[in-house]
Amino acid sequence: MSPIVELKDVRKSFGELEVLKGVTFEVNRGEVAAIIGQSGSGKSTALRCMDRLETIQGGSMLICGHELHDDDIDLKSLRRDVGIVFQSYNLFPHLTVAENIMLAPRMVKGMKQRQAREIADTVIAKVGLREKMDCYPEQLSGGQQQRVAIARSLAMEPKLMLFDEVTSALDPQLTGEVLRVMEQLAADGMTMILVTHEMAFARKVADRVIYMRDGKVHEMGSSDILRMPATPELAAFVAESAEH
């Protein structure tokens, strides 16, 4: 199995502040990787670099066959291959759920209304919100909005999905419904990288756990490392997370 995501010694600074200090890891097709770590350790930054929302300054990054260090990278095609969902759902408030989902397929892929609608019907079913198609975002709960945001990304039929703490803004009840959607996605074989604070969820679905600390990968392995950490830092982090 060939890796679909390959980071080699990736470096990234904001001005003076070096946030990524040589990050190296791989994720294979169909795998679920969970990135965990303290606040400020560079998890979000790493994820944002993978969709080239930030440019890297050193090392190399290969995402779905796109070399991100290239200046003449085909951004449109990269973003077709990669879907990303943030903590704040960022649905377009002036569009209905259906229009939110259909916007990119129509604009970016040039689909006809009918074709886009078929795709929208498919992805909205995946997140279980078929009856909300004609609602506006403000009429939905936070969990429902986040599920629509996931559906909106899925509509572009990405090869890789990135999730940045997508449940952090949600109540525990609503967290469950979003996690179930992601679990189903993983079961369907989607390659996913998720930054998460939900240790139980990481343990359950992640094939690979990446523990980041101070801009580097400190420990990495199967989800077993959460049960039997090799480094004292990860052990402390897991213990700390369990308290909450």
């Binding site: 960022n90 604009m107 945001a149 990304s153």
Partner: peptide, 15 residues
């Protein structure tokens, strides 16, 4: 965040 969402979906600047 709205702009970022649009960028991630692959919309061009004009779109």
């Amino acid at each position: 965040g709205q702009l970022e969402a649009a960028t991630c979906l692959g919309l061009s600047r004009t779109q």
